[in-house]
């Protein structure tokens, strides 16, 4: 197989006495969706935070296209082409939907010599923001204030903001949580359409969605990797059956 674009090696994160992520290794490839599943508190979000630079690892390395990310700031990692969405919606509540995405798109265009040009007049930025909103199915709500959106719509916006930065690697932390079936369908389709050109890590409790899009599957429990492989391998794994899949599959857990 081709070189992975992102490779986490023996990553650990300790919060005081608690080891939230324990010696986890994982690879992401362009053209593949790597699903990360596991019960609540397994350390999935913490792992995402390590990869995105929101948290510094206690141990281990992250190689991204030849660069070691460990200890790098979140903003630099973002500029290298790694984007993420948050499980707990993390948007600019007071701004319009469009401005949320516009700000995300603007981060790719930093021209110091244009300090007096109206922000709304950068057409390339506007276009990218619009495209991101269309992709997640939120174009009709562009002028609404983010705080006034329904929970599901805020989840859509969360993903649109990640898209607007045009990342190569997408880390999606429970993108479908809180969405209705129609929005979920849109996002699953979106993930499918992005797969060819991106490397995607998908954290999700909705097993139908996971098995619909995942090329590889990693199961985490208590901060550790319980199993990793193709979906059918993992599905057949007895330990996983007992520990996780058996009880959770189809339960619609949030």
């Amino acid at each position: 197989m081709a070189e992975p674009i992102l490779r986490a090696v023996n990553l650990s994160k300790r919060f005081g006495g608690l080891t939230a992520v324990n010696d986890v290794s994982l690879e992401l490839h362009v053209g593949q969706v790597h699903a990360l599943i596991g019960p609540n508190g397994a350390g999935k979000s913490t792992l995402t935070n390590l990869l995105s630079g929101d948290l510094k690892p206690s141990a281990g390395h992250i190689h991204y296209a030849g660069v070691d990310l460990a200890g790098m700031s979140a903003e630099r990692i973002s500029h290298l082409g790694l984007g993420r969405s948050y499980q707990k919606t993390n948007i600019f509540l007071a701004f319009s939907v469009f401005e949320n995405c516009r700000l995300a798109a603007q981060s790719r265009r930093q021209r110091a010599w244009r300090i007096f040009r109206k922000a709304s007049r950068f057409e390339d930025v506007n276009a990218r923001a619009r495209a991101a909103l269309e992709a997640v199915g939120l174009a009709s709500r562009r002028d609404a204030i983010a705080a006034a959106l329904s929970h599901g719509e805020q989840r859509q916006l969360e993903i649109a903001m990640c898209l607007a930065t045009e990342p190569q690697v997408l880390l999606l932390d429970e993108p479908l949580a809180g969405m209705g079936p129609q929005e979920s369908g849109t996002i699953v389709e979106l993930i499918r359409s992005l797969t060819a050109a991106h490397a995607i890590m998908l954290i999700e409790h909705d097993m139908d969605a996971v098995f619909a899009v995942a090329h590889r599957l990693t199961v985490m429990v208590n901060g550790e990797v319980l199993a990793s492989g193709t979906p059918s391998e993992v599905r057949a794994n007895e330990v996983v059956q007992q520990a996780y899949l058996g009880e959770e599959h189809g339960a619609g857990d949030v």
Partner: peptide
């Protein structure tokens, strides 16, 4: 409004 998100979006805040 949200410095954390700005950093995640790539802004050197």
């Amino acid at each position: 409004s949200n410095e954390h998100r700005m950093r995640a979006l790539g802004y050197d805040t």
